[in-house]
């Protein structure tokens, strides 16, 4: 393993993040505050509690997941697409690094940035509501796994995309609806029975449910199933990346 190269890619990618630190820090703080004002206050005044948890606190895990998933995808896809777009990819391809090292560098940096923002949102939310974390290790595991797996997905999108429109296609048309319909702002038990069944086909439900369980100990689906889902998703992303590595798809002619 060329660890020096991995560190070089990681450091270079993180530099982009630190260059715009204020923006990276302020924008999640602002958007979280807005969500609390709109959802927590306006809707929360009508839905006092969900299964014993105040509505404001109930939406926190979903809010964190929403940002973490979107940011993981956009950071990682942008990270690898930008060199393709600028032509600087020549250097990666001609360096003594293999694809695994490239993935670790880019995905590691993208996941770190998303994790940072996730923690900022968590910290911000403590100003608005009381948060308790019943299973901190599970919470950390779900958070980190989500950052990693969606960064992997973002990396795949970045390799696949041949223009900026395609970059936003998957996040906007697929991921955003899945997150909003995945129980970010409500419990599945609040839905009519038919929709409860349909919702179970949405993979994000398992993610948010598991993450919420680590906070409040309440879940829409069994926690083991949540864990299995996120591990399976990570596995699928890794398999696709392995295939790209083998074939050089969209990278080497």
């Amino acid at each position: 393993m060329n660890w020096t190269a991995i560190a070089a890619i990681y450091r270079f990618e993180m530099a982009r993040f630190f260059r715009t630190l204020a923006q990276s820090f302020l924008s999640p703080v602002l958007s979280t505050s807005l969500y609390f004002v709109v959802f927590g206050t306006a809707i929360g005044s009508r839905i006092q509690e969900v299964e014993g948890v105040s509505y404001g606190a109930f939406i926190v895990p979903g809010l964190i997941m929403l940002s973490v998933v979107m940011l993981s995808i956009s950071n990682a896809s942008f990270g690898i697409y930008f060199p393709k777009f600028l032509g600087t990819i020549y250097e990666l391809l001609s360096a003594p690094v293999n694809f695994i090292e490239i993935v670790i560098g880019y995905v590691g940096a993208a996941a770190t940035k998303a994790l940072f923002v996730g923690l900022v949102i968590l910290a911000t939310s403590t100003f608005f509501v009381d948060i308790r974390i019943e299973h901190p290790f599970a919470m950390a595991a779900f958070l980190i796994l989500s950052c990693l797996s969606f960064s992997l997905l973002g990396f795949i999108i970045g390799i696949w995309a041949s223009n900026f429109e395609q970059m936003s296609l998957v996040p906007q048309l697929v991921v955003t609806p899945l997150i909003f319909l995945g129980g970010t702002f409500y419990s599945i038990s609040m839905l009519p029975p038919l929709w409860q069944t349909i919702t179970l086909f949405n993979p994000v439900v398992y993610l948010i449910s598991g993450f919420r369980w680590s906070f409040f100990g309440l879940a829409d689906v069994p926690i083991a199933l949540s864990l299995l889902a996120i591990i399976a998703f990570t596995g699928v992303c890794l398999a696709v990346i392995g295939w790209i590595f083998k074939t050089g798809w969209r990278l080497r002619s």
């Binding site: 020096t4 190269a5 560190a7 070089a8 890619i9």
Partner: peptide, 9 residues
């Protein structure tokens, strides 16, 4: 510096 690092130095 990135270039140097990529080549493992």
């Amino acid at each position: 510096r990135l270039s140097r690092g990529l080549f493992g130095l």
